[in-house]
């Protein structure tokens, strides 16, 4: 039993930590969340169908991240406003002729910050799709959101990231 569980831990722990790191934007909280998820895995792994275990782990990790965010006082500022969900992309003309091509050197750092400030569920979808390479179907199953909506949210999430990087609001 120990060996089987250990094998599972080795298979999933880096993935759990990577998701938590980009979701929360800091190492300490990502470690706490990873520990919590692995403990939950220890308590439940025998009851979860092996085929659904990766989806279960991702769901538990995301929920643990959201719980961690709730503990932060600034969480309220991150809650997604309804009207913002429906807002269309602002036209490029609004930004005038400002330079939009970003400095490749600092883009990664700014992107990490922008990502960890993105509202849910955009944040989870962008991480799962763009960083962890999950398919739309897998993301749809994990987050229990229709496939078409996942695509719309992904595009919207990337667009929001772009706006924030360009406008320097990160």
């Amino acid at each position: 039993m120990k060996r089987r569980f250990r094998k599972l831990v080795d298979q999933h722990r880096h993935r759990i930590y990577t998701f938590a790191y980009y979701h929360l934007g800091n190492r300490e909280e990502a470690e706490d969340v990873s520990q919590e998820v692995l403990m939950r895995m220890w308590k439940n792994w025998e009851e979860v169908e092996p085929a659904t275990l990766p989806a279960w782990i991702t769901r538990v990790t995301r929920n643990a991240c959201i719980d961690a965010l709730r503990k932060r006082t600034r969480y309220q500022a991150m809650v997604i406003p309804e009207e913002d969900c429906e807002a269309s992309v602002r036209s490029a003309a609004d930004r005038g002729g400002q330079e939009t091509v970003l400095d490749a050197i600092d883009i990664r750092e700014r992107l990490e910050k922008a990502l960890s400030a993105l509202e849910e569920p955009y944040r989870a979808i962008v991480i799962l799709r763009e960083i962890q390479g999950m398919t739309y179907e897998e993301i749809s199953e994990v987050l229990d959101i229709p496939l078409g909506t996942i695509k719309v949210y992904l595009h919207r999430g990337r667009r929001k990231l772009r706006r924030r990087l360009v406008e320097g609001t990160v």
């Binding site: 722990r13 930590y17 990577t18 970003l102 490749a104 883009i107 990231l161």
Partner: peptide, 15 residues
């Protein structure tokens, strides 16, 4: 550029 940068963000190693 943003899509490429997202894809190049490294997988993290759980300590």
């Amino acid at each position: 550029q943003v899509k490429k940068a997202l894809g190049s963000l490294p997988q993290k190693t759980c300590p």
